[in-house]
């Protein structure tokens, strides 16, 4: 018999419940959760699939550490220790140990997909093992989102989620950047300007929790940051590169997020609108019934309500618009 505390509740709140559960030799935390379901709490919500550390479904916080429940052996705890299991903190709780991870799927969508080389037919792709290996490291990712959950930029900072894609998507950007045949050349710029790479100050917490042992910071984030700086033709870096060995180079200062919105890059020949940004459309104020208040008697001004909402101030902050000015680089 071991003591367990499991968080139960939903978006409206919840509490840690105490349980006494049987634990057998060689079991992992997920086995214990399953035993709880089968014997005491049939409706205890928890995600899992493979029970082999391959699908990344069973992420939760065990004694405060973000971990895969199926890969956390019970033998790593003392007999007498109480094991506390709580849902991932960075994402809104749906119920019990299940959280709403849709933030991650949204960020995945905003990242431009692999761009196949135009002039290579399927079957004619030629790449050297040594060149694919760098990207392959990142493709090991099982999307457990433990790194996303751990990163202090969004943990307890809901407000940063809009601008910040998170370590999982930095490695995706790095993967495509290092893909020998990817036809896009602006992955690093995109990461800084659209994914909020600048928010990352290389604390390496993400690397620490990654169950696949992907070197998120060393192999993806840092190279991406370095190269962005040198792409911008910082003359000092260029000179330093010429006279110093690689290991003597000063570590690049993390690029700060630009004031207002990050500048937007747009492909040549495309409309001056960046669709991959989700900007909230300015709309009119609506009442509790979902309609605009059209009663003139109650209105605080004459004439009809503005289609943009009477609350909207002009000019609008360009940072919130999908439109970009073609002249502004």
């Amino acid at each position: 018999m071991r003591k367990f505390k499991v968080w139960r509740g939903d978006s409206s709140g919840g509490r840690l419940n105490d349980y006494q559960v049987e634990v057998n030799e060689g079991e992992v935390v997920l086995d214990v959760i399953h035993r709880l379901q089968a014997t005491q709490e049939p409706d205890l919500a928890c995600r899992w699939n493979c029970k082999a550390g391959k699908c990344g479904s069973c992420s939760m916080e065990i004694n405060g550490m973000p971990r895969l429940a199926c890969m956390t052996r019970m033998s790593t705890f003392e007999e007498s220790e109480t094991v506390t299991v709580t849902p991932l903190r960075t994402f809104p709780v749906i119920r019990d140990l299940v959280t709403d991870v849709s933030y991650n799927y949204q960020k995945a969508r905003e990242l431009p997909a692999f761009a196949p080389p135009a002039d290579v037919a399927p079957g004619d792709y030629r790449m050297q093992q040594i060149d694919v290996e760098r990207s392959q490291e990142f493709r090991k990712c099982i999307e457990c989102f433990l790194c996303q959950n751990t990163c202090h930029v969004v943990r307890d900072h809901e407000e940063n989620k809009r601008e910040f894609a998170g370590p999982r998507f930095f490695i995706r950007a790095a993967e495509l950047d290092m893909h020998p045949l990817d036809a896009r050349g602006d992955r690093k710029e995109f990461a800084t300007q659209q994914q909020g790479l600048g928010y990352c100050n290389i604390t390496k917490c993400c690397t620490e929790v990654c169950p696949e042992h992907i070197k998120i910071t060393d192999n993806a984030i840092i190279p991406m940051k370095e190269r962005v700086v040198d792409r911008r033709y910082d003359p000092l870096v260029v000179i330093a590169r010429k006279i110093l060995r690689r290991d003597q180079l000063p570590t690049a200062a993390p690029a700060e997020p630009t004031l207002h919105s990050p500048p937007v890059t747009v492909m040549e020949g495309k409309a001056p609108v960046d669709f991959s940004r989700s900007a909230e459309a300015a709309g009119p104020e609506v009442g509790p019934d979902g309609h605009v208040n059209l009663n003139e008697m109650l209105s605080d001004r004459v004439a009809a309500a503005s289609p943009f909402g009477d609350q909207t101030q002009f000019p609008l902050d360009p940072g919130d618009l999908n439109y970009y000015h073609p002249d502004k680089k």
């Binding site: 196949p116 399927p122 079957g123 792709y125 790449m127 694919v132 990207s135 990817d182």
Partner: peptide
């Protein structure tokens, strides 16, 4: 099946390679 595999490469898959750079 060979066509289906090659197609995956155009979607971005990275299979292990042979010496001459083809899919191992």
């Amino acid at each position: 099946s060979p066509d289906r595999i090659w197609e995956l490469e155009t979607y971005g898959a990275l299979f292990d390679r042979t010496r001459d750079g083809r899919i191992s």
